Amino acid sequence: MLGERRVSAAGLVMAFNPDEPHDGQSAVHDGYRYRMLHLGEDLARETLDDAAPGRAGLPLFATPVVDDRALVRYVARLHAAVAKNAPRLVVEERLTAAVLALTRRASTRSALLREPQGRTDLAAMARARGMLRQRFVENIGADELARVAGCSRFTLYRGFRAAYGFAPSDYQRDLRLRRARALLAEGTAPSTAAVEAGFSDQAHLTRWFTRTYGVTPAAYRMALQRES
């Protein structure tokens, strides 16, 4: 409510309605740090309309301080993707997830946004997967995949995961990792393999390659060279 004082802390989400004046200061002498995302009205409305055409509307928050651990994870994952310049598919998937979570878990319109029911269109998902196979190196967006599949982005996200067990961005990353591994096996330098496989730089390749295969790209390439 206007004029009220609220106290937030680590592990909480602060959500403000459009044009709602607010200010803040530290409640302790050591100061404070926070991560902020500004989601414009048009962006939020477009995301919700994609998920529930004509039903959701713009969410309004009943309280500016939300104690919800799951919501914190959704917002933090989106912030990390934006801050680290993640691929478009990653950012767009996490944006949709965060906006839906904010609406369902913290807004006054949560009852209007329910999980849709229905079968997955496997042919549509196969078309989206085919495009990813052909163009995985490109920084392709969800709009293009949804257009090829003939569905909304939200339906694409849900359907792709239902059909294949992972998100479109996960599949794109897997294809890039496979391509990078093949290039490294041919003796290509990690920095070159990263670019040719679609990663933004060598650091991104190294992080995901190590996480997936348990060895750095450089070590993998060197081990194969020793065997040959």
Rank of each mutant, 00 (worst) to 15 (best):
L2S: 12
R6Q: 13
A9T: 10
A10N: 10
L12F: 03
M14A: 13
M14N: 05
E20H: 09
G24F: 02
Q25A: 05
D30R: 10
D30K: 07
D30C: 02
G31H: 02
R33F: 01
M36F: 02
M36E: 09
L39Q: 10
E41K: 08
D42R: 15
D42V: 12
L43N: 11
E46G: 04
T47C: 09
L48F: 08
D50W: 14
A52D: 03
P53R: 14
P59D: 13
L60Y: 14
V65A: 07
V66T: 15
A76N: 06
A86K: 11
A86F: 06
P87V: 01
V91Y: 06
E93K: 02
T96G: 09
T96L: 14
A98I: 02
V99W: 05
L100E: 14
T103H: 01
R104E: 01
R104M: 03
R109G: 02
S110G: 09
L112K: 11
L112I: 00
L113V: 15
R114P: 00
E115N: 11
E115R: 04
P116Y: 08
R119V: 09
T120K: 07
A123I: 03
M125Q: 13
M125T: 05
V137R: 15
G150W: 04
C151I: 11
S152F: 11
S152W: 11
S152L: 13
F154E: 11
F154I: 00
G159R: 10
G159N: 10
A163W: 08
Y164T: 04
P168N: 09
D174L: 13
L177A: 04
L177R: 01
A180L: 10
R181C: 00
E196I: 02
S200H: 09
Q202P: 02
Q202V: 14
L205C: 08
T206V: 03
T212Q: 14
Y213I: 00
A219P: 00
A219N: 07
Y220H: 13
M222I: 00
Q225E: 12
E227P: 01
